[in-house]
Simulated assay, not measured.
Amino acid sequence: MPTVGWIREGDLDAFYEGTERVPDPAPHKARTFACPFCPSILTTQLDLHDHVYARHRVERPVIMLPGGEPTGNDVIRAPLHESDVMLTNTSFARVSVDGAMSRQVSPKELPEILAKTKHAEVKLELVNDVQRNAVPVTSKYKISFRVADLDALRSVEKAFVEVLVSAAISRESIGRFLADKRAQGAGNEYASGLANYCLGILIKERPDGERLTTPLSRYREHYGSALEILKDFDRPLAHLIASIIRFSMNDFERGRERTGYWELDLTNELLVDPSSENLPPSQGHSKRRPVCPVDHGTGRMLELASHLVGQPRWSPILDDECRALARSDVLDASDHQKAFAIWAAVAWRLGATQSALEPLSQIAEVYPFSRWAREYLEKEPM
């Protein structure tokens, strides 16, 4: 029977047919996961994740300076020592000073470089490159070094006393202080902090002759700016003003640090713990030299505390005196709160628990006084 040529089997077809083999049925081979960093083979993806985390994790490199890790743009105002610089997870660093080309340095070299820097803008990149086949982890910082020597700081303080302590504070006197050649140069940062503090006093007190249009609440911004600068200077004047600012803003986290200003140390200790047995003893009436201005609201709170603590007993007259001050229309809100707290603390110390109820109820929900005011209210039977 005739056949069609195109369906006729050829030699090549016969060869392929003879060599084909059907694989024997068997279980599929389990899937595995190879570590990209070492020869390890893991059976599950979770095992791979755990393996990489345990054996090949690359931590972020960190530099620690006094006060903690620098922010993205930090300012160094106090001299650094090599021991102040701590590095972790760092293979090497790249440093650029005042816009110059960056250079690579080792972790051992970097502390010495930073300790020697006084006035410069430094761009710092830390690199952790310990893991082969992994992208290095980096941390970047911009640090402004504005470190003044002791003579420059003393010159600023002399100008401050002559211009802003010995006379009334005004916008003109603040400008004159900043323009003084002793407040220029290396000490300019210190002078800026002192000027911000005085500007905050001016805005808070609002003397008639200044015709201020800045809202009263803005004084807190200037106090905060001054504190941010002055806290970095290891000078008695800077420590004192920083403590006054914290007191004014009802920040008592460091309230037990002594400044030598008796009224301030007394009131701080009283408001941190009204039952404290460590109130600093009175310094009598020895004449003191003024070293910095204090805003009238803060000064009035210090006067109230020192006056009340010196009383041997409590009376309704003291209630009236405290009530009038605590509810005064011219005090700032933070001073109102301190007046109530001083009233409550001293009345409680003198055993006048009923007199303490009124001010305690006013500050029971006001931080930081609520930490002890609530406890005292709970002790007193209603």
Rank of each mutant, 00 (worst) to 15 (best):
I76R: 08
A364M: 08
L124Y: 09
I245F: 04
I7Y: 03
D47W: 04
L65C: 04
V122E: 06
L308G: 01
G297D: 15
R371T: 15
L164Y: 00
S334P: 09
V161W: 08
A333Y: 10
T44C: 05
V156K: 00
L304R: 04
G310H: 11
A324I: 06
W262F: 09
N278C: 08
Y141I: 04
D232S: 15
L153D: 01
I201A: 01
Q184H: 05
V58D: 03
N278A: 05
L377H: 11
G260L: 09
E321T: 15
G10P: 04
P312T: 08
C38Y: 11
I229Q: 06
V130D: 09
A326D: 13
P27K: 08
F177E: 08
L304C: 04
H296T: 11
Y367A: 14
L150G: 10
P107N: 08
L271A: 15
D84P: 00
T19R: 12
G351C: 03
Q354H: 07
R220G: 00
R182M: 02
G72I: 10
N133K: 11
M249V: 14
Q45S: 15
A242I: 03
E59N: 14
G68V: 06
R132Y: 05
A339G: 07
Y141M: 02
L350F: 01
P107C: 06
L110T: 07
E205K: 00
G68D: 12
P368Q: 13
F145K: 01
N278F: 11
E20V: 15
S106I: 08
P236S: 09
P368T: 04
E17L: 06
A226M: 08
R154M: 10
K108D: 14
T117G: 03
E9M: 11
T3P: 05
W6P: 00
I363R: 07
A326N: 07
A93S: 15
K123M: 12
A183L: 04
A183P: 00
L48R: 13
Y261K: 00
Q104G: 10
P2I: 06
W6G: 08
T353I: 08
L87G: 13
D265Q: 03
L114D: 11
S166N: 15
G209Y: 07
R146Q: 15
L164T: 02
R327Q: 13
C322E: 11
F33E: 10
R154S: 13
A100W: 02
D13S: 12
G187Q: 02
V97I: 15
P136A: 13
L80A: 13
L237N: 05
W343I: 03
E221W: 06
R300E: 14
R176V: 06
Q337G: 07
H222A: 02
E221F: 14
L114C: 12
I174P: 07
S276V: 13
S361W: 10
K204I: 00
E82N: 05
V137G: 06
S306E: 14
Q354D: 14
L318D: 00
E358P: 01
A93R: 09
E263F: 02
E189V: 03
H51G: 04
H56L: 08
T259F: 09
E205A: 13
D273Y: 14
